[in-house]
Design a protein around this nucleic acid. Structure first.
Lengths: 210, 210
DNA sequence: ACAGTTCTTGACCCTTGGGTCAACTTGCCT
DNA sequence: AGGCAAGTTGACCCAAGGGTCAAGAACTGT
């Protein structure tokens, strides 16, 4: 590969990483090229597909943080606390970084690294859930599949509320944790309830204009 | 208005109602015209905007069923049961009818009738929630705004799982109800857990290819 | 320093969906 | 029956986003 091509690829990776974090994994490829300062033809030439581009940057974008969350969750003495920590942490990552949100949701099946990260995350979730269940801390019929589905909807919710009430997702997470806990502590959710206007705004964004 | 125009408007309303129920309120207008057997120009001529068309059919599509659900919920002796019934019923309506899902989510702010229905639904929700809270059945900090947000995400989830595991949303609802209840009964969710493959499929559809 | 290979460019094509309007048809009233 | 208003049509416009490729620019090895 020629030196200038190498340089362009690097610029594209950088631009992609930026835009993925700002707007998620489905930003227009032409915009990535624009930010990188090259023609979109070059992007197609060097990477071919969006999935290939994702594969080259996604590890740095999400893998570390997800792995760390899982590790830390398992390091808690109390499996119940570890479980709660993990769910909140992952949701928080999703809320603060659209790229992570899309990674966890695991669209883009053609991106191998992404799917690998996804798989690792699910394995971690399984371990964290089972540990909590063995301790009798959470309901025994909750599965990692349920959790993934929750993460999937949380990704959308977090993105929809981002501009209006950036912490709104915490309430839903609190309700879920309460529902899963075998001995709920009935704590107050860690975010204020939304106003009618805020809900109105958010609803417009939920699957509305992305 | 000439008789043939009247007839065309009727055909368009019928086609719209059908397609809204099959695919939600954002089906392409040209497709509605095609199903009605008229040119899309006629649709624009007779209704002008998607919102106007929605306004003419949405009452028949959703209002009755939503009102009925609210009414029935309030007729329960036990406020806790009424509350649980209402949430499950609305989610079920969303799951079985994409039009209802979009109505409850209240996008399309320009559609007056739709927004009216939305408002009525929220009022009903408020009453049902407050009744349950007065009875001490559910946590006192849950608001109708929280519920609307939940409905919003449920709409997306229900649509995503429709082809793969049409009852999957019931598990999430069960977890929420458990989390809101002050004296949870720890019942089993009323749907089987998903398999990995099913989650994989669903994730692809969640905010993926609409 | 130049040939030859590699790479880049941007004009071009495709699709989907919203929207407009001049020219044509058709219903209706007299 | 005929004329005019009302209604219909479909070709056309737009924008966004994905993708391709001939022509030209730029590296690099000798």
């Amino acid at each position: 590969m020629r030196a200038d091509a190498q340089r362009n690829a690097e610029k594209l990776r950088a631009a992609a990483a930026e835009l993925f974090q700002e707007r998620g994994l489905k930003v227009p490829l032409k915009e990535i090229a624009r930010r990188a300062g090259v023609s979109h033809g070059t992007l197609y030439n060097l990477f071919g597909t969006r999935e290939a581009l994702i594969d080259e940057v996604v590890t740095g974008l999400a893998a570390d943080r997800l792995d760390e969350a899982a590790e830390h969750a398992l390091s808690f003495e109390d499996p119940r606390e570890g479980f709660a920590y993990y769910i909140e942490k992952v949701c928080e990552l999703q809320a603060t970084d659209p790229a992570v949100a899309d990674v966890v949701s695991g669209r883009f099946p053609a991106a191998e690294c992404l799917m690998a990260i996804c798989g690792r995350a699910q394995d971690a979730a399984t371990r964290i859930i089972e540990r909590a269940q063995l301790a009798g801390a959470i309901r025994p019929d909750f599965t990692s599949e349920d959790l993934l589905l929750f993460f999937g909807t949380n990704a959308l919710l977090a993105r929809a509320v981002a501009d209006t009430a950036p912490d709104a997702w915490r309430r839903q997470v609190a309700f879920l944790l309460q529902g899963l806990d075998t001995a709920p502590a009935q704590e107050a959710p860690s975010a204020a309830p939304l106003t009618g206007q805020q809900v109105y705004d958010v609803m417009g964004r939920l699957a509305g204009t992305p």
